[in-house]
């Protein structure tokens, strides 16, 4: 079971992880982007958290996060994370608690919408490389009968492996793609911030 308390804890923890790693995200974004991923994500999450524990339904909580990402982040991360949260919210409807499998399915719907918005496939060196395996692992573990905490741990493991796998990849999307071969050898900052989503989920599940 996932409740509004779970989601509030997840989002609050995610904001804290982003905050702690703002400099790292910016550093990752410097050689292959424009050195603003840390600052942009921190600004977005700072706007997402206030009042999240008082929002009565999960979909409204996810919508609050999505709108904060959309209106405060800008660049590519804003619309991408905005799409992820807004589409997940739409998939759930106005409820204060949902089955873990429904929550996982909503995240998968959001992640698919994000990939479509960014026209990115796995292997393009983007946040999709962390997100897609993570939501797949979450759904798989739940369908195999594991509890939500174990499933979240499996999702984080898959997300982190996906993040790490972006290092040798050649970027095919976004500003990094203009670097061609010079993008190889750098871990994707978007895949890193996406992996943090599941690190936070694992910690609160």
């Amino acid at each position: 079971m996932v409740t509004t308390a779970t989601v509030a804890a997840w989002i609050t923890r995610y904001a804290a992880i982003i905050d702690e790693n703002e400099a790292l995200l910016t550093e990752l974004d410097s050689p292959i982007g424009d050195a603003d991923h840390g600052a942009n994500m921190a600004r977005g999450m700072a706007a997402a958290v206030p009042g999240i524990d008082a929002v009565p339904t999960i979909d409204a909580q996810l919508k609050q996060v999505g709108m904060a990402m959309l209106s405060k982040v800008g660049g590519t991360s804003g619309p991408l994370y905005g799409t992820l949260f807004l589409r997940a919210a739409m998939a759930l409807g106005a409820r204060a608690e949902v089955a873990s499998s429904e929550f996982a399915e909503a995240l998968a719907t959001g992640a698919a919408a994000l990939a479509e918005r960014g026209k990115a496939d796995p292997g393009d060196k983007t946040m999709v490389d962390a997100l897609a395996p993570a939501v797949a692992a979450l759904e798989r573990a739940l369908s195999e009968g594991h509890g939500f905490a174990d499933a979240a741990a499996a999702a984080f493991e898959a997300a982190d492996a996906g993040r790490e796998a972006t290092t040798p990849m050649l970027a095919r999307k976004g500003r990094a793609s203009y670097l061609g071969e010079r993008s190889v050898g750098h871990t994707d900052p978007g895949a890193t911030s996406a992996a943090y989503l599941f690190r936070a989920l694992q910690e609160v599940a």
């Binding site: 424009d34 603003d36 942009n40 959309l70 209106s71 405060k72 982040v73 800008g74 660049g75 590519t76 804003g78 619309p79 905005g82």
Partner: peptide, 11 residues
């Protein structure tokens, strides 16, 4: 007007 070198937002 977006942030410096950053796209404006949908709103």
């Amino acid at each position: 007007a977006g942030e410096m070198f950053t796209s404006p937002t949908p709103d």
